[in-house]
Amino acid sequence: MSKQEEYWHRNLRLVFGLLFIWGAVSFGCGILLHHYLDNYTLPGSHFPLGFWFAQQGSMLTFIVIVFFYAWRMNKLDHEFDVEEEQS
């Protein structure tokens, strides 16, 4: 595998992993498991857990996903020495 292919595969793996989390918190916890999770509350508050994921929790996770991806990819660029030249 060339360096270029390896870089792309590592990017894809990261993207798929993060998209899995993205789907799990929104479609999973926020929608499909909503009724089940509503039997619990978010610790330290009175939010039913499924409802909280739908109205706040998924969004907070999204922010973490995007910043994590940016940080990880910028590091990967450095590792493969493919950062942009100064323009």
Binding site: L18, L19, W22, S26, A54, S58, F62, I65, V66, M73
Partner: peptide, 24 residues
């Protein structure tokens, strides 16, 4: 009520797709 969550998740979840699949 709960049904309104579609706007919250939908209009922010799109940014994850944007960040991972399109913007860069």
């Amino acid at each position: 009520g709960y049904d309104g969550s579609v706007y919250l998740m939908g209009w922010t979840g799109g940014y994850v797709l944007l960040a991972l699949l399109l913007a860069p």
